Simulated scan of single mutants.
Amino acid sequence: MAASAAEHILMVCWALNDPENEDQMRELGEAIEGQREIPGVLTIESGPRTKQVDWEGPDDAFDYAMVLTFDNFDSVRAYPPHPIHQKLVATILRLGSDIRGFWIDR
């Protein structure tokens, strides 16, 4: 199934204890990239909050975000308990806090 055919999207953001720590950012990036190994994950986009936004409105309470697309609803349901995902959650909670997720269905 092509990425453009994705019907389910997860957006997640979180705060980091030390967003300037390069070793921690590398560890976080590796944990995020590991999500590609989970069956049903089609695409992943992630990165730190941009510092270039200079207008009111964007929430600055979060330092990092990730957007994933999934091929079907069975993959969506299987994602949260998957061990690779649980490793990412543990990494985020060790390096930060306040994980917020939001699901979108097309």
Rank of each mutant, 00 (worst) to 15 (best):
D63S: 05
S46D: 13
E37C: 05
I38A: 02
H82S: 10
E33L: 09
Y64V: 10
D60H: 05
W55Y: 14
T43F: 02
I32A: 03
A65L: 02
D71L: 10
V67L: 11
T43Y: 00
A78H: 02
E22P: 01
S97P: 05
A61P: 00
R26F: 09
E30N: 09
R36S: 10
V67D: 00
G34R: 12
Y64C: 05
Q35I: 14
I44M: 09
I84G: 01
P39Y: 04
L88P: 07
D63M: 01
N72C: 11
G40M: 07
Q24L: 08
L93S: 04
R94Y: 05
I44F: 05
R26N: 10
Y64D: 00
V41D: 03
G47W: 04
Y64G: 02
Q35P: 00
F70A: 02
D60N: 07
I92F: 11
S97L: 05
D60P: 02
G57D: 07
S75E: 07
A90E: 15
V67G: 01
T43I: 01
F62A: 00
H82M: 10
G96P: 10
V89H: 11
I44E: 03
A90D: 15
P39K: 02
G96F: 07
G34T: 08
H82C: 07
W55V: 15
P48Y: 00
T50A: 11
D63I: 04
P83E: 06
R49N: 15
D54N: 13
F70H: 10
G47L: 06
E22S: 12
D63R: 01
I84V: 15
L68Y: 04
I84M: 00
G47R: 01
P80Q: 06
L95Q: 14
G96E: 05
R26C: 06
D74L: 08
Q35E: 09
I92C: 08
R94W: 11
I44Q: 05
I38F: 02
I32V: 15
I44L: 13
D74K: 12
T50I: 04
